[in-house]
Amino acid sequence: MKKHIIYFFLLTFSFFFTSCGFYSFTGASIPANVKTFQVNRFENNALLVEPGLENAFKIALEDLIQNQTNLNLVTSNGDIVYEGEISEYRISPTTATSENTAAQNRLTISVRVRFFNRKKEDDDLEQNFSFFYDYDGTSQLIGSVKITAHEEIFERLTQDIFNATLAKW
């Protein structure tokens, strides 16, 4: 009877360790030979230019990749490279009041991303990503409203970029 219990525990622990050994909580499927990444400048080509937006976006993307992978950030010769441009920064009304004023506004930010995997060129990607943030029509896009809008949009954009390039979702 003791032998059966010992075998049961050994079998249980072996399943536990092998099933958890290859799992990534972020869903990233990064080849073992990829060790570094670089994020080049994202030029702001939007018609409405928000100063400093390109740098804030670059930092948000770098932070997300560093937090969700064990890749090292480099300034040149990265195994994987992100680059592109901010193609849209637009504020538009989404709903109106009976007085023909905006009840709600929407900030939309779109980026065009080029992704290069120097270790596996089949993974290269060029794609547009876009997300929005709705805010009250009586508010101006300044101060905390702008900070919150940028943070929420960047969080979604960078996660979508990560999923498309490294998680393959």
Rank of each mutant, 00 (worst) to 15 (best):
T94K: 13
E62Q: 15
G78K: 00
V81P: 02
N163C: 06
V113L: 01
T97F: 02
W169T: 10
E126A: 15
N67R: 14
E88D: 13
I86R: 01
D79E: 10
L48C: 08
Q38Y: 01
V74Q: 11
G137V: 04
I65T: 10
E152V: 08
R41T: 14
Q127Y: 12
E152T: 12
N77D: 13
Q66S: 15
A28Y: 05
T158A: 11
L11M: 14
A164F: 02
Q66D: 15
H150V: 11
V49E: 04
C20I: 09
S98M: 13
D123E: 12
Q68L: 13
S87N: 11
T18A: 05
Q104M: 09
S92L: 11
F8W: 13
P51Y: 05
L125T: 09
K120G: 05
E126W: 05
Y7H: 08
T108N: 09
L10Y: 12
G52W: 08
V74R: 10
N44A: 04
F162T: 05
A32V: 15
A28G: 05
N117I: 00
H150M: 12
K146H: 07
E99G: 13
Y7D: 03
S87W: 01
F15M: 13
P93W: 01
C20V: 06
F129T: 06
D63E: 09
L47K: 11
L64H: 07
A164Y: 04
T108G: 05
I147H: 09
A46W: 07
F115W: 04
D122W: 01
S87F: 00
V49S: 03
T95H: 00
Y133P: 01
D124V: 09
N117P: 02
T138N: 01
L48E: 14
A164D: 04
S29G: 06
D136L: 06
S98V: 15
N40L: 14
A149Y: 06
T138A: 04
V39Q: 00
N55W: 11
Y23Q: 13
F42T: 00
D134P: 06
N40P: 06
I147A: 15
G84L: 01
S29P: 02
D79V: 04
F9M: 15
F115K: 00
L166H: 02
A32F: 14
P93H: 06
A46C: 07
R114M: 05
I59P: 03
L73E: 14
F8L: 15
K3S: 11
A96D: 09
A164P: 04
F25L: 12
V145M: 14
Y7V: 07
D122Q: 11
D79T: 08
G78H: 03
A102M: 04
A103D: 02
G78F: 01
L157Q: 00
N128A: 10
K120T: 13
E152A: 14
S98I: 15
R41N: 10
K119V: 07
R41M: 08
E99H: 14
L73W: 12
V39P: 03
K120M: 09
F162E: 07
E83F: 10
V81L: 07
N72M: 07
